[in-house]
Simulated scan of single mutants.
Amino acid sequence: MKHVKIMGIPFTHITHRTLVQKLEEHIRLGEKSFIITANPEIVMHANADYEYMRSIHKANYITADGIGIIRASQLMKEPLPERVTGYDVMIDMLEIAEKEQYKIFLLGAHPDVLNRVEANIQKYYPNVEIVGKHDGYFDWNHNDVAEQVKEANPDLTFVALGAPKQEKWIAQNIDQFEKGVFLCVGGSFDVIGGVVKRAPAYWRNNDIEWLYRLLKQPKRWRRMLALPRFAYRVIKQKLKGCL
Rank of each mutant, 00 (worst) to 15 (best):
M1Y: 13
M1P: 15
M1N: 15
I6S: 10
I6D: 08
M7I: 11
G8W: 03
I9N: 04
H13A: 13
H13F: 12
I14V: 13
R17Y: 09
T18C: 10
T18D: 15
L19V: 05
V20A: 03
K22G: 08
H26T: 14
L29K: 15
S33R: 10
F34A: 05
V43K: 03
V43N: 08
M44W: 02
M44T: 03
H45W: 09
A48M: 10
R54S: 11
R54W: 07
S55I: 08
I56N: 08
N60R: 09
N60E: 09
I62P: 05
T63F: 03
G66H: 05
I69Q: 07
R71E: 14
Q74T: 13
M76W: 02
E78K: 14
E78L: 06
E82Y: 05
E82H: 07
R83V: 01
Y87M: 11
I91M: 11
D92Y: 03
L94Q: 05
L94G: 08
E98Y: 07
E100G: 01
Q101I: 02
K103C: 08
I104E: 12
G108K: 05
G108H: 08
A109V: 02
A109Y: 09
A109Q: 12
V113M: 03
L114M: 01
N115W: 06
N115D: 13
N120V: 04
N120T: 05
Q122L: 14
Q122T: 11
Y125T: 03
P126G: 04
G132K: 01
G136V: 00
D139K: 11
W140E: 14
W140I: 09
N141R: 10
H142R: 08
H142Y: 12
H142I: 02
A146S: 09
A146N: 01
A146P: 01
E147F: 06
E147R: 06
V149N: 07
K150I: 09
K150A: 12
L156R: 00
L156A: 00
L161D: 10
L161I: 01
G162V: 00
A163W: 04
P164T: 07
K165A: 14
K165N: 13
Q166K: 04
K168M: 12
K168H: 07
I170Q: 04
I170E: 05
A171I: 03
I174K: 14
F177V: 01
F177Q: 03
E178F: 02
K179R: 15
G180I: 02
V181P: 13
F182D: 10
G186D: 10
V195A: 12
A201S: 08
W203Q: 03
R204K: 15
D207V: 02
I208G: 01
L211K: 09
Y212V: 00
R213I: 00
L215T: 06
K216G: 14
Q217G: 04
P218E: 09
K219G: 13
R220F: 04
W221A: 06
R223Y: 06
R223I: 00
M224E: 11
F230L: 01
A231T: 10
V234C: 10
Q237A: 12
L239Y: 15
L239W: 13
